[in-house]
Design a protein around this nucleic acid. Sequence first.
DNA 1: CTTGACTCTCAAGCTGCTGGAGACTGCATA
DNA 2: TATGCAGTCTCCAGCAGCTTGAGAGTCAAG
Lengths: 271, 271
Amino acid sequence: MYRIGEFSKICRVPVSALRYYSDLGLLPPESIDPESGYRYYSAGQLPRLNRILALKDLGLSLEEISAILDEDLPAGELRGMLRLKRAEIGQRVSEEQARLARVENRLRMIESEDRMPDQEIVLKELEDVPVVSIREVLSNPQDVGMLIADGYSALMPAGIMPIGACFSIYHDPEFDPTALDVEIAYPVAETVTDVPDTPGGRSFERRVVRGGRAAVTIHQGPYDMIDQVYTRIGKWISDHELQIAGEPQEAYLTAPDDPGGPVTEIRFPVA
Amino acid sequence: MYRIGEFSKICRVPVSALRYYSDLGLLPPESIDPESGYRYYSAGQLPRLNRILALKDLGLSLEEISAILDEDLPAGELRGMLRLKRAEIGQRVSEEQARLARVENRLRMIESEDRMPDQEIVLKELEDVPVVSIREVLSNPQDVGMLIADGYSALMPAGIMPIGACFSIYHDPEFDPTALDVEIAYPVAETVTDVPDTPGGRSFERRVVRGGRAAVTIHQGPYDMIDQVYTRIGKWISDHELQIAGEPQEAYLTAPDDPGGPVTEIRFPVA
DNA sequence: CTTGACTCTCAAGCTGCTGGAGACTGCATA
DNA sequence: TATGCAGTCTCCAGCAGCTTGAGAGTCAAG
């Protein structure tokens, strides 16, 4: 019979861990002196301990290990557990590989530019958004602002309050400033159905903008620099081995008179 | 100015996380109503939040991110940090890949045998062990027990108390039962220097057995089945794409009269 | 009998949140 | 004006697998 310290040396498992396993009932000592409370272990417990370590190495939790060792699980259930683990670990591997790629990317950027970028691009999961929207082909990109205002001035008097920032969707595969096919979308409650026409005579469509994975970034400042953002985001997407999977959106997050200047979120659905 | 819930919707970060970042000082709200305690955020804070998310995606801790964002770290230090991260993640990737391989291995084993093995083999890190040892070529493997006893009966009267279980080292590249080159090692304190000869006239050597990574397993039961353990451990090592990197050791963990029967630990240095 | 190494039992800490309890606040409706 | 009710606030606990530390008791040797 060994005291916990000697046993710890033999099995090369820290004393604190042995005590923890003992508390969990995962590896109870062979005997405990009722007077001193000293734990006594025997060499015969080493196989069990090794089984614990091996299963832990497979990524199983101590609780799962407990179940396996003490409840004498049927082989089928064990197989199921391991298959689950396999999937889980496979997932983690690819996540970590992606993370590694991101870090290396960032390192290259730092080496070449000697600093971090000002705007960051991040992957986010977008939800489906019920909206009312107007779509039009504009001959002048500057008219987008007017179109937005038009929409608001039709919705407000009709008692329809957008429940989130309005955003535009650019339907052109290529950006064409002389014929800009743009849709302005106002998020609304699902209950909204009847929508008036705009003062300009345009009619709203009621639809749901589908969500999903998107590369997202924030542009802060004057609007005319925004094409640089598109360039950067395009590069980012190809760098990360993703593909554009939908039309880009721009969400206008500030009121027109915001003292901090305009803030725009650019979203690129990807897959 | 947005309340926390609206801001949370915009940036798609849970309210609880925003509150946490606020408490850490990582993303303090633009203002806090002193009466109600309500946090108010502005769209201008989104770039900072995105930076936080992007850095978190690289695997940096919130504390590190804090330092990067607020202390305006020089690019050099940043590079260092990222290189460290890269190494760390690379390590994790290969660990997880190894784990995946282990799980798949185990799954194959279960499919073919329909149960878990009785003895587990685990990788452990051995420490350097100062020992006194005797080495001899035996014509009969059975004589190992005698050799061990011989050693003890020379050490004890000399006042030298081994501080751990004695173990044997098998120096044969191939197991040859008619000429077994075996060394019996008794772990001793570093202060021990002078060692007597054995009753049989053999002389001890004072040396340090080098540690390192080893595949380790426990054999419980009669000694004559031990060759199976060697077979299994050899297969395990090649299965795990490791290589034998030293002579195998056997540690005798029970006293000869232990009621639980003998327990032996078999160790194979690997790399 | 003392010393020093070991052991015991609690409790807290790590990381990045999440979830819940109990109390307020703010806006909209009856 | 009262009343909801959704949103917000501040704690506090929990996760997983230990590790660390405090304060107290135990064991073997000198």
